[in-house]
């Protein structure tokens, strides 16, 4: 599947293996795995809310853009929602291309757009309470390079 939005945990290694096996004609495969990080210390878990329907549509459109813009043979995006503990895998971007440059660039492109344009909202839950993660200007600015 090219786009998967799921509450269930997934095995990043198995996904990479499966994606690579299906990426015919690729000379290079790039994968990025996002992991829940305890930035300030004391993170109990993260809750990721999303907009069912729009999320899948928005990511599929980003993937289509990436396929059109870069010379790719395949691209896959997996993104979780719901409750995630520190160290858990949140998301994964996989790109395959005849040459590595396109695979790396397309993975960066997809990550930049996912950060600011896929309808997910992260909430950090600590012993002191819960707080929505604020969007960063740097993430918005990153889109201007594309």
């Amino acid at each position: 599947m090219s786009v998967l939005v799921t509450e269930a945990a997934f095995d990043a290694g198995a996904e990479l293996k499966d994606f690579t096996a299906g990426a015919e004609g690729a000379g290079g495969v790039v994968s990025f795995t996002g992991v829940v990080r305890d930035v300030a210390g004391g993170l109990s878990h993260m809750e990721i809310e999303h907009y069912p329907g729009m999320t899948e549509r928005a990511i599929a459109a980003m993937r289509d853009d990436a396929m059109a813009r870069f010379s790719l043979t395949a691209a896959r995006v997996i993104h979780r929602h719901g409750r995630l503990a520190p160290g858990e895998t949140i998301m994964m971007v996989l790109t395959a291309a005849p040459h590595r440059g396109d695979a790396f660039a397309a993975a960066e492109f997809l990550m930049d757009w996912l950060k600011s344009r896929a309808p997910f909202w992260k909430k950090e839950v600590t012993a002191d309470g819960a707080e929505w993660v604020a969007a960063k200007d740097a993430d918005e600015d990153a889109l201007t390079r594309w």
Binding site: G34, M54, A58, S116, P119
Partner: peptide
């Protein structure tokens, strides 16, 4: 209708409007 839009956009024919803070995916 599940496409990002703007506050000055017309509502004619729209079935679903969603309001939310800036997104924090990835």
């Amino acid at each position: 209708d599940q496409e990002l839009s703007s506050f000055d956009a017309p509502l004619a024919g729209v079935r679903e409007v969603a309001f939310f803070p800036p997104m924090t995916g990835g």
